[in-house]
Design a protein around this nucleic acid. Structure first.
Length: 814
RNA sequence: GUCGGGGUGGUGGAAUUGGUAGACACGCAGGACUUAAAAUCCUGUGAGCCGCAACGCUCGUACGGGUUCGAUUCCCGUCCCCGGUACCA
């Protein structure tokens, strides 16, 4: 009797696909294109677990379906292979990260091939490969050579900026730039030296160097981006993170804030993901208002407010403790109080400040500000509820309309002035209503909210004391990392005539700038990044760069952040082996954008935002055709681990540990321990295997208290991870049931978008289904039963009903 | 707090636009085959009622209302769960 033999079948076809290059795809203008992309994985040492393939299976099904529908389908796979774990491993063992990475990738590829995915492996990319990161460095260079013109609302080359400087100076240039950029005329521009002109352009570029408050993680010896920090500690490693002012490469993503927001309305993503990006960008419409400081002519406090209409309700001002004006305006008798407060704020970690929302604290500077609308004197305080990093780091406080201001006013005995006749309960809390007519409000008395705001803004603009303004929460991205295993920033430094180093781009002909070898992967003894250990890591003239002139120049020592390589990779798949361009214009014109992108929701404010940013930039510069890179996006839910626990009775003798079965644990005082799920079947522990993994309890040394003759493990659903011993590897399942069963089963587990625990309870049913299916086409002797006869009417009916059903089910998924 | 998504048998979950609720599968129970087991196949399986059985009846998609000939689906309110975010002026 013959039966379904998954090993033989799958081996045969995987070999056939390999030999025939079945999944290879070439550009073909006679067919419509369709691009199905998976978020490429970081190749970790643990290999693939059963959670990884979920999205890959779905996208593979869809790719095959689209091919059968006559589309030319691009469905590639690659590796996001720069990353911290390989570097950490290198620090511990001295093994080069490239080697570890290579081994891990080989394992991933083997596992992915075993699962029978229809990837075109000829297009595979690896972000850590010099032939790939050459183009990551090149894009960095293009950003460096560009500025953002607000008038045309797009990025342009630096040449258009210097031309404008030569014609009319910078007074009419409307562009995001360094806030300390002086205004100059065309004549002044022409009078500058070449170095001075160059230094001036550095203030406008889309990548630039600035002193920035960064998340410094001493444990990792590196700067982290906001999305790499969770609850005040590093996401990887869990080391404490502190705020520190450092000179850093920055990327001007804020120039694109509005377009990143607008683009969301044109793409087919889930509402929750779009909301996450909207919140992250954090647009708020309001006004900037200048308050003069009484007795300090020329010193203004500029505030941002979304409620200018409440301006007559201002009874005090609050500055962030870090605000630069604080030291200048504090009066003699308030000095010690202010100093103490600043000290106590510094001591409180970011975590405490955020966690403690309720208590009110602050200190009076002794100075007063003048309300520009009625010249009323209001006291200036400092308090840590005002954040230095948002808006201007100063607020006008309106206790009648804002709860935090109300709390502060009540605590310090400051007046609370109602400004709308619709406001209630002023004694117990603030009322943020916009209903009613204004009272106590000078020029807007008797008006409604809708009427008042334009009147106020016009009044301020006429007198140059304020203007309408849109503010974003989004900050420019810190682009430098003090690490080894990343793309070197392709920049060298040369001193100007005053001996100040200026950054210059390494010419395209000298790319890629390859990672040098270093003896150790740690920062140097003098605190430089690991690249500072590289011998001869100095710029040599290679291709006649006019500025390098033969002498020695220093390379930039920082490397790029993890998201650099993944912010454009979908283009590289279009033309993966091109040595002259990141992808040929022909390939890009054919494949254009990703039609369906499948991946996890954890990249909402990282990868998915940076990728949209770089894509818009590349579009501005004419390299790519579409404003948005990912038309449709589906987030597959996480497959969680199902951890198993054994319970050890507390206080027992260490030489003879006692473990009690889950059902009886209430009768003892126990502590739960994770136990490897691979030695547990249907929650029953294999005691012999358990003993074998734990030398301390081998032989007769441990006692097990059983129920019904078995040791039952406790169960908890947690994230799948090595440290929780709940990782299920797909290889064992493929070996036992075959890739088809695993794929079908994962699709059967529940809705794709939903998180769900891994659980093999139902896998036998799926396996039975496939075997039944196989037997529809083979008899007991293993003979192929399908005949080349004209089908009957009934058979055709079944066939077409099936086709319709399959089509509808698959289309509804996308 | 706030934004987003959800709540359907013992379990995972179906139900396309408001039209037979519970597809398919797991589990469970019974049966066939077998010396026995595995595998395979067949039958039953939301709760309750009447009954030997068939036929049939009532209730039922978190809870309370509403719209409708008809509601898991639409509207209002309440409770609970999951995810994001957190002094953003």
């Amino acid at each position: 009797m013959s039966d379904y033999n998954h090993r033989e079948i799958e081996r045969k076809w995987q070999q056939f696909w390999e030999e025939q290059q079945t999944n290879r795809v070439v550009e073909d203008i006679s067919k419509p294109k369709y691009y199905v992309l998976d978020m490429f994985p970081y190749p970790s040492g643990a290999g693939l677990h059963v959670g990884h393939p979920l999205g890959y299976i779905a996208s593979d099904i869809y790719s095959r379906y689209k091919r059968l529908k006559g589309f030319n389908v691009l469905h590639p796979m690659g590796f996001d292979s720069f990353g911290l774990p390989a570097e950490q491993y290198a620090i511990q063992t001295g093994q080069h990260p490239a080697l570890t990475t290579e081994q891990n990738i080989a394992r991933y590829i083997e596992q992915l091939k075993n699962l029978g995915f229809s990837y075109d492996w000829s297009r595979e990319v690896r972000t850590s490969d010099p032939s790939y990161y050459k183009w990551t460095q090149w894009i960095f260079g293009e950003l460096f050579n560009s500025w953002y013109n607000n008038k045309t609302d797009q990025a342009e080359t630096i040449e258009t900026l210097t031309q404008e400087f030569g014609h009319r100076g910078n007074a009419r240039v409307n562009a995001p730039c360094d806030e300390n950029t002086p205004t100059f005329t065309a004549a002044e521009w022409k009078a500058m030296s070449a170095d001075e002109q160059y230094a001036m352009t550095l203030k406008y570029r889309l990548t630039y160097v600035a002193d920035a408050t960064v998340n410094w993680c001493a444990g990792l010896g590196s700067v982290l981006s906001n999305d790499e920090v969770k609850d005040g500690v590093s996401e990887r490693g869990g080391f404490p993170v502190e705020q520190k002012l450092m000179r850093q490469w920055m990327m001007r993503i804020t120039a694109y804030a509005q377009r990143l927001l607008d683009g969301l309305d044109t793409i087919d993503w889930t509402e929750s993901l779009k909301e996450q990006q909207r919140n992250w960008i954090g647009r708020s419409v309001g006004a900037m208002v200048k308050f003069a400081v009484d007795g300090y002519p020329g010193h203004n406090i500029e505030v941002f407010t979304t409620r200018v209409d409440t301006i007559y309700g201002v009874t005090f001002m609050v500055l962030a403790p870090e605000h630069e004006l604080v030291s200048q305006i504090t009066t003699e008798d308030q000095k010690s109080e202010i100093q103490d407060y600043i000290q106590s704020t510094k001591k409180r970690s970011e975590l405490d400040r955020v966690a403690d929302v309720k208590s009110v604290s602050g200190a009076f500077t002794g100075a007063y500000a003048l309300n520009p609308f009625n010249d009323q004197k209001v006291p200036i305080y400092i308090a840590d509820y005002v954040l230095a990093g948002y808006g201007t780091g100063a607020v006008m406080a309106v206790p009648s309309g804002d709860q935090r201001d109300w709390n502060f006013a009540t605590h310090f005995g400051l007046p609370i002035v109602p400004i709308l006749d619709g406001q209630k309960n002023m004694e117990t809390e603030a009322d943020a209503t916009k209903e009613g007519k204004y009272i106590n409000s000078g020029i807007i008395d008797g008006l409604t909210f809708a009427e008042a705001t334009p009147v106020l803004i016009q009044w301020m603009e006429e007198r140059n004391i304020g203007k309408g303004k849109i503010n974003y929460r989004l900050r420019d991205a810190v682009f430098g990392r003090q690490r080894y295993w990343g793309e070197p920033v392709p920049v060298y430094y040369k001193n100007d005539e005053n001996g100040q180093p200026l950054p210059y781009l390494i010419s395209e002909a000298d790319l890629p700038l390859e990672l040098p070898s270093v003896g150790k992967y740690l920062p140097t003894e003098t605190g430089e990044p690991p690249l500072g250990r590289a011998e001869g890591w100095k710029y040599q003239e290679k291709s006649g760069d006019s500025r390098s002139g033969g002498s020695r120049y220093d390379y930039e020592l920082s490397t790029m952040p993890g998201w650099a390589g993944s912010s454009w990779y979908w283009y590289r798949y279009m033309d993966a082996h091109n040595a002259d361009e990141f992808a040929s214009p022909e390939a890009i014109a054919y494949w254009r954008d990703v039609d369906l992108y499948v991946g996890g929701t954890e990249h909402a404010t990282g990868h998915l935002l940076y990728s949209r940013f770089w894509n818009k930039f590349l579009k501005d510069r004419g390299y790519v055709p579409e404003e948005e890179p990912f038309k449709k996006l589906i987030n597959q839910g996480m497959i969680q681990g199902r951890s198993s626990f054994v319970y050890r009775v507390k206080g027992d003798d260490y030489s003879k540990p006692v473990f009690v079965s889950a059902g009886l644990r209430d009768q003892y005082e126990v502590s739960g321990l994770h136990v490897d799920v691979n030695i547990v079947e249907n929650d029953v522990l294999d005691i012999e295997k358990f003993k074998a993994t734990r030398p301390d309890i081998a032989g007769e040394n441990a006692e097990f208290i059983l129920e019904d003759g078995k040791y039952i493990c406790g169960v908890e659903v947690e994230k799948m991870s090595k440290s929780k011993f709940n990782v299920v590897n797909p290889d064992d399942i493929v070996e036992r049931y075959g890739a088809d069963t695993l794929r079908l089963y994962e699709m059967f587990l529940g809705p794709l978008e939903q998180a769900k625990p891994w659980n093999t309870n139902g896998i036998d049913g799926t396996f039975r289904f496939i075997r039944k299916f196989w037997r529809l086409f083979y008899n007991d002797a293993g003979q192929w039963l399908v005949k080349d006869e004209v089908p009957t009417k009934d058979e055709l009916k079944v066939l077409h009903k099936t086709i319709k059903k399959v089509q509808e089910d698959i289309e509804s998924f996308s």
